[in-house]
Structures are given as C-alpha cells and as structure tokens.
Amino acid sequence: TYTFKVDNKDQAKKAAKWAKKLGLSFQIEKHGDTFKITVQ
C-alpha cells in the first residue's frame, strides 16, 4: 500500500490516472486543501 498527499485536484487526477494505468485500486480522500491518495 502506497500513500501520498497532493495539494490540488489536478495532481489527484494525475495520480488516479497513473493508478488506473497500472491496474491498481485507489482511494482519494479530501482533507481541506489537500488530497490523500491510497494506492494498493
């Protein structure tokens, strides 16, 4: 499981695209202005 934080929606979208490309499941949680992405 890999967790990282991004500062904006664009970065969150890029991370989601990357995870989908690799066939991984992911969750994006919004914490105020940051997004926490968990990829597994």
Rank of each mutant, 00 (worst) to 15 (best):
T1K: 12
T1D: 09
Y2E: 03
Y2C: 15
Y2S: 03
Y2T: 04
T3Y: 10
T3F: 09
T3S: 11
T3M: 06
F4R: 01
F4K: 02
F4D: 02
F4S: 01
F4I: 06
F4M: 03
K5L: 15
K5G: 07
K5P: 06
V6D: 01
V6G: 02
V6Q: 01
V6R: 01
V6P: 01
V6M: 05
D7H: 13
D7N: 13
D7S: 13
D7I: 09
N8V: 03
N8D: 07
N8A: 04
K9Y: 14
K9F: 14
K9M: 14
K9W: 15
D10H: 14
D10V: 11
D10R: 13
D10W: 14
D10I: 13
Q11L: 10
Q11G: 07
Q11K: 10
Q11D: 11
Q11F: 06
Q11A: 13
Q11R: 06
Q11H: 08
A12L: 12
A12Q: 02
A12N: 01
A12I: 07
K13C: 15
K13I: 12
K13T: 08
K13G: 05
K13L: 11
K14S: 07
K14D: 05
K14E: 07
K14P: 01
A15R: 04
A15Y: 15
A15I: 15
A15P: 01
A16K: 11
A16D: 02
A16C: 11
A16I: 14
K17V: 09
K17N: 09
K17L: 10
K17Q: 12
K17G: 06
W18V: 04
W18N: 02
W18P: 00
W18Q: 03
W18M: 05
A19E: 01
A19W: 03
A19D: 00
A19L: 15
K20L: 10
K20G: 04
K20M: 10
K20H: 07
K20R: 11
K21L: 09
K21Y: 08
K21G: 08
K21D: 07
K21M: 11
K21I: 08
K21R: 12
L22E: 05
L22S: 04
L22M: 12
L22D: 01
L22V: 06
G23Q: 04
G23C: 06
G23D: 02
G23Y: 02
L24K: 03
L24V: 04
L24Q: 02
L24F: 09
L24P: 00
S25Q: 11
S25V: 11
S25T: 11
S25D: 09
S25A: 11
S25G: 06
S25M: 10
S25P: 06
F26H: 03
F26T: 04
F26A: 06
F26L: 10
F26K: 00
F26I: 14
Q27V: 13
Q27T: 14
Q27H: 12
Q27S: 13
Q27W: 13
I28A: 04
I28E: 02
I28Q: 02
I28D: 00
E29A: 07
E29C: 12
E29V: 12
E29W: 06
E29M: 07
K30A: 10
K30T: 07
K30W: 05
K30D: 07
H31V: 14
H31D: 15
H31P: 01
H31Q: 13
H31S: 12
G32R: 04
G32H: 04
G32F: 05
G32I: 03
G32N: 07
D33A: 08
D33R: 06
D33N: 11
D33I: 06
D33G: 08
T34F: 14
T34Q: 14
T34E: 12
F35K: 00
F35V: 03
F35L: 04
K36T: 14
K36P: 00
K36V: 15
K36A: 09
K36S: 12
I37R: 00
I37T: 00
I37P: 00
I37Y: 01
I37N: 00
T38R: 05
T38S: 06
T38Q: 05
T38W: 05
T38M: 06
V39S: 01
V39C: 05
V39W: 04
Q40H: 12
Q40R: 13
Q40M: 13
Q40K: 11
